[in-house]
């Protein structure tokens, strides 16, 4: 049996903090909807835009796998492990918060907004040593194919996290069709349309829509326009 959940872009929570515009797929901070808590191990999917020169001041995290994917602009990261880094579109950042970490995330540019996806996954192991990593990936490697940018395996492509999850980016030309095959049977698959229009197993999705599905093994994706996607495969239980 195939179950699914549709999260249209306009159904997301919106938080306007002046310096930060945040569209939140799941309950976050002061926004709460018991029907919008998580999709399996995927707990947070925030679509954040931070004004020039602004950002998140020093704050803590623990026991969460936190992934940032810049879409536009430049983000500057500093943390209590001594990491100072800048990430740009074409890169992915992962912070495995484990036993505790403090960090700041600021827009490095004084004038240009930065837009990035902030994604949190529950870890499959508690209280691990905190860890930071970031990787650059080639944009050409996702043209009409799935480009793996995250996995549970340190030796596999992309960054790794403490959870049996995989992230893929894809940029499909209009009319291109592909099948995504689950890495682990029983996992869920969450498709987030960064830009464009696609059909996922018959469900039409547009820019910033999200669609969670628990497929039997594969999922068909057809681009109705030139489209950019993030595909998140996560366990339902862990």
């Amino acid at each position: 049996m195939k179950n699914s959940v549709l999260h249209p872009a306009a159904s997301r929570f919106y938080a306007d903090h002046g310096w930060l515009q945040s569209a939140q797929t799941f309950s976050f901070h002061g926004n709460y909807d018991p029907q919008r808590i998580q999709f399996g191990a995927l707990r947070v999917l925030n679509d954040d835009t931070v004004n020039g020169g602004k950002g998140f001041g020093r704050h803590p995290h623990d026991n969460m796998e936190i992934i940032s994917i810049p879409l536009e602009g430049t983000l500057e990261h500093e943390d209590s492990m001594g990491n100072v880094a800048v990430i740009r579109p074409g890169e992915i950042q992962v912070m495995s918060a484990g036993t505790g970490i403090y960090h700041t995330e600021f827009n490095k540019d004084a004038d240009v907004p930065v837009t990035f996806l902030q994604i949190w996954l529950y870890p499959d192991k508690l209280n691990v040593p905190p860890r930071y990593d970031q990787r650059e990936y080639a944009s050409g490697d996702r043209h009409n194919r799935f480009q793996q940018i995250l996995s549970p395996d340190p030796d596999d492509e992309g960054v790794w996290i403490q959870q049996k999850a995989w992230f893929h980016l894809a940029e499909f030309d209009m009319g291109f069709e592909a099948k995504y095959e689950l890495k682990i049977a029983g996992n869920g698959m969450y498709v987030f349309v960064i830009k464009g229009d696609v059909e996922v197993d018959g469900q039409t999705l547009s820019t910033r829509d999200g669609y969670g599905i628990w497929p039997e093994s594969t999922v068909s994706i057809t681009a109705k326009q030139n489209s950019s996607l993030l595909i998140i495969e996560v366990p339902e239980k862990w």
Partner: peptide, 11 residues
């Protein structure tokens, strides 16, 4: 409790 901050605490 996961996350260590305000993100998840309230919900």
């Amino acid at each position: 409790h996961f996350g260590g901050g305000s993100g998840l605490l309230y919900s």
